[in-house]
Design a protein around this nucleic acid. Structure first.
Lengths: 142, 142
DNA sequence: CTTTTTGCAAAACATTTGCATGTAA
DNA sequence: TTACATGCAAATGTTTTGCAAAAAG
């Protein structure tokens, strides 16, 4: 039996590298745009295929938004992937859930067998807030 | 000044009623299918418009999944809308966050201004689990 | 060589929108 | 009557797929 192995390609490497160098979440479309702008020849279908395979292998994780899926490199494949996302600049901070035991407790109370959970916080980060506030101050002054 | 009021229509009433009678989340497509099956003449666009308006008025809330948006009637418009969803039968239980203060704390620690957050738990409810287990027992016995 | 990956275009879906028509109020 | 709501079809936008050609091993 010959084990099937995944081949190393320029496109695959680029997608992974791009995702790794990214501060926050990014959409497949946006990622494709950036790679193309850098001169890489890559099709949108390949970006989706690479991204899906990264998620599958738990090297990336995805969150769903009304505009589609957003992807991010996953530092610790064992971690639970909770994030605080700045809706202004896209910066993402990985956060710790209040207490993993809480999930077990609430599940037990309702006799649920928990398979997964989401916990994401959205807002404006300090930098964007500062920028926004200074702009507001300027505007109201004129 | 004449206040603009929302008119009562068969379609609007049906969407709201259907959502109210629903145990869990449902997609716009699925909801449209059911209403149509019941003989109601309603277009998919109207379902989307009604659903969006319910979300807007906070009478329903929505979650994003890879397959699209799922909607659910919202019992308490003031509540924070966290759910525990059975991925087998779709039943949804509204759950209380561990501690609303936690969100404020984590936000403060990273100097974020929080606008919204999600917290959803997915798994198998007691009933579905029992059913699954009995089936498993039966299968292993044959 | 053999098999996996790619690119492209077409397809499949979810959701929104323009507009003429229907219908509450 | 007079707006607002609807239905339909067309338009959007995202993600997937079929297939022949390119590339990895």
């Amino acid at each position: 039996m010959t084990t099937t192995r995944t081949r190393r390609t320029a496109q695959g490497t680029a997608v992974r590298a791009a995702l790794d160098s990214m501060a926050g979440f990014i959409s497949a479309q946006e990622l494709h745009r950036r790679l193309s702008d850098e001169g890489l020849k890559i099709g949108i279908a390949t970006v989706y295929r690479q991204l899906n395979s990264l998620v599958e292998s738990r090297d990336a994780d995805a969150i769903s938004t009304p505009e589609g899926q957003l992807y991010r490199a996953c530092t610790d494949p064992e971690a639970h992937h909770h994030h605080m996302v700045c809706t202004s600049c896209g910066t993402t901070i990985e956060i710790e859930p209040p207490d993993e035991a809480w999930f077990a407790a609430i599940a037990g109370a309702h006799r649920f067998e928990v398979h997964s959970h989401t916990l994401d916080v959205f807002g404006i980060c300090a930098d964007c807030r500062a920028e926004r506030d200074s702009r507001a101050a300027r505007d109201s002054a004129e």
